[in-house]
Simulated scan of single mutants.
Amino acid sequence: MKQKIMETGIHLFHQNGFKSTSVQDIVQEMGVTKGTFYYYFSSKEELLKDIHLSYIEEIVIQQEVILKNNSYDFTKKLYEIIFMLINNIQSKGPSARIFTRENRHLNEKHVEEIKEKRAQFRRNTQKLVEEGINQGVIKKEFRADILTLGILGMTNWSYYWFNPDGEVPVEKVVEIFLDMVLNGISNPEKVSNSI
């Protein structure tokens, strides 16, 4: 039942927004009583927190599986992480959008729990970027922390514009992002190094 409440919350928060969805809306959609809701969640905010935690915990697990795959080199690991984040827009679209859009409605205590999981994902990504620098795949003069935030910012922002059913498939978007990270966007024949 708890999972069903979370699924209904995800559906309604995605469709109507967190603020416009009440506990009554959730139980009415499910055909249960408010008592059923409050048996599993103390408030609508706690439900939102659990939706956030469930989403971030799952992507941290997926990320760690990628990072531990010894058959992947640095580039393949980075590709797979970017692919996973963007592909989640299609496979877990409503949860992904709620995760990015509705976090402002979480109270400070709940935000801290989610921040730690987000930080874990960022640290894991930064460790990979540091490996790329150490291997010489990425320029040594680049800061791993800034590159990491750039990569995550680029991929996370795609939740606002990427249409999984649009003309550009997820694989192509990932290839473009990876090429931008590893090779930049300038044509060396046309751009001078005057910066």
Rank of each mutant, 00 (worst) to 15 (best):
K109M: 08
K109E: 13
H110L: 00
H110P: 00
E112P: 07
E112H: 13
E112I: 13
E113L: 08
I114D: 09
K115F: 03
K117N: 07
R118K: 12
A119P: 02
Q120A: 13
F121V: 11
F121S: 12
R122E: 11
R123I: 13
Q126S: 12
Q126H: 02
K127Q: 15
K127E: 14
L128H: 12
V129T: 10
E130D: 05
E131G: 07
N134P: 06
G136Y: 02
G136L: 07
V137M: 09
K139E: 10
E141W: 05
F142Y: 11
A144I: 02
A144L: 06
I146V: 15
L149P: 03
L149V: 12
G150S: 13
G150R: 07
I151K: 13
I151W: 06
L152E: 09
G153K: 10
M154A: 15
M154G: 11
N156Q: 14
N156I: 01
N156D: 11
S158H: 02
S158G: 06
Y159M: 11
Y160Q: 13
W161C: 12
W161F: 13
P164E: 05
P164V: 00
P164A: 07
D165V: 05
D165P: 06
D165A: 09
E167H: 08
E167L: 11
V168K: 02
V168C: 01
V170Y: 00
V170G: 05
E171T: 04
E171D: 03
K172D: 04
K172L: 04
V174Y: 02
I176N: 05
L178I: 06
D179F: 00
M180Q: 15
G184M: 00
